[in-house]
C-alpha cells in the first residue's frame, strides 16, 4: 500500500539538497527577519503605548506576531508555487506522472525534508534567541506546547493542500495571474497571519471563520498565546482536522482531473 521507504527517500534527498543551497537559507531568513521587524513595528505603533486593546495585552499580541512569523517561515520553506507551475507549463510534470509514485505526496515529503533543514539550521536558532531577548509570553503548560505544535502541523498540511491545488490549476488556465493573487491575499489576511481575527470587523471575522485559512496561522497562534484555551483548543483542532480532510479531497479531485487532462493531450 503506502510505501514509506520511497517517500522517506524524497524527504531525505530534499533535506540534503537544501544543505547545498545555503545561500537560499540565509536570504530567506533575512527577509523573514525584515517582515518580523515590519509587523512588530506596526503592532507596536497600533497599540501606541497602551497595555491592552480589545482584551488582549500588548505582550500577547507581540508574541502572536513573532509566532506567526516563525510559522510563515516554516510554511514558506517548501517547494514554491511557481516551481510547480513551471513544471506544468514546460511539460516536465509528465515525466513525474510516468513514475511509480504519487506526485502530491512526493512533493509533500520533499517539503518535509527542506522545511526540516530550514527549521533546524535557521528558524529555530533565531526564534529561540528572540524569545530570550524579547519580552514575550511563553506558555507554561507543556500540553499547550503540544497542542500548538500539533495545530501548527495541521495548519501546514492545510496550507500545502490549498497551495498545491492552486498550483495545479495551471493545467487548466494558461495564465493564473488574477486567481493567484486572490489566493495570496486570502492566505495573508483571512488566515490571521498578520492581523488576528478578533480585531476584524464582525462580519469579516465570521466570514473568515467559515474558511479553511484560519487553520494555517490563526488557530496555532491563538493557542500559543492562550486566546484559545481549555476545551476550545479541542474544538479548534477539530475545525482544523475537518478542513485538512476537505482540502485534501479538493486537492485529490484537482489532481485527478489534471492528470487525466495530461493523458488526453498525450503529455
Amino acid at each position: 500500500m503506502f510505501n514509506y521507504r520511497l517517500y522517506w527517500t524524497f524527504a531525505k534527498k530534499s533535506f540534503l539538497r537544501s544543505a547545498v543551497y545555503r545561500f537560499d537559507v540565509w536570504s530567506r531568513l533575512g527577509s523573514n527577519v525584515i517582515f518580523l521587524l515590519m509587523w512588530g513595528s506596526i503592532w507596536t505603533a497600533l497599540y501606541a503605548g497602551r497595555e491592552e486593546a480589545g482584551g488582549v495585552s500588548f505582550q500577547a499580541m507581540l508574541t502572536y506576531i513573532v509566532v506567526s512569523q516563525f510559522l510563515s517561515g516554516v510554511n514558506g520553506a517548501g517547494t514554491p508555487l511557481w516551481e510547480i507551475q513551471e513544471k506544468v507549463r514546460t511539460g516536465d510534470i509528465s515525466l513525474e506522472l510516468m513514475r511509480p509514485f504519487d506526485v502530491p505526496l512526493r512533493y509533500l515529503f520533499a517539503d518535509f525534508g527542506s522545511v526540516f533543514f530550514y527549521m533546524i539550521t535557521a528558524l529555530l536558532p533565531l526564534y529561540i534567541i528572540l524569545f530570550f531577548f524579547m519580552d514575550l509570553s511563553l506558555p507554561n503548560d507543556p500540553l499547550i506546547w503540544l497542542a500548538f505544535s500539533f495545530a501548527a502541523f495541521i495548519g501546514f498540511l492545510i496550507r500545502y493542500c490549498i497551495e498545491m491545488a492552486f498550483g495545479l490549476l495551471t493545467f487548466f488556465l494558461v495564465e493564473t495571474g488574477g486567481v493567484e493573487d486572490i489566493f495570496y491575499f486570502a492566505m495573508s489576511l483571512l488566515s490571521g497571519s498578520v492581523i488576528p481575527l478578533w480585531f476584524f470587523p464582525g462580519w469579516l471575522a465570521s466570514f473568515a471563520s467559515y474558511l479553511p485559512f484560519q487553520g494555517i496561522y490563526y488557530i496555532p497562534n491563538a493557542i500559543f498565546i492562550g486566546e484559545i484555551a481549555g476545551y476550545q483548543i479541542l474544538t479548534s483542532i477539530g475545525v482544523q482536522l475537518f478542513w485538512v480532510v476537505v482540502t485534501y479531497i479538493f486537492l485529490r479531485l484537482v489532481w485527478n482531473k489534471a492528470s487525466q487532462k495530461v493523458v488526453v493531450q498525450g503529455g
Binding site: 497600533l46 488574477g178 491575499f185 480585531f199
Partner: peptide, 20 residues
C-alpha cells in the same frame, strides 16, 4: 492580478485600522 494584489494591501490596511 496586480489590481487584486494592491487592493489586497489596501484592504489589509483598512482592517488593521478598523479598531485602531
Amino acid at each position: 492580478g496586480m489590481l487584486t494584489s494592491y487592493a489586497g494591501t489596501a484592504i489589509t490596511m483598512w482592517v488593521m485600522l478598523y479598531q485602531f
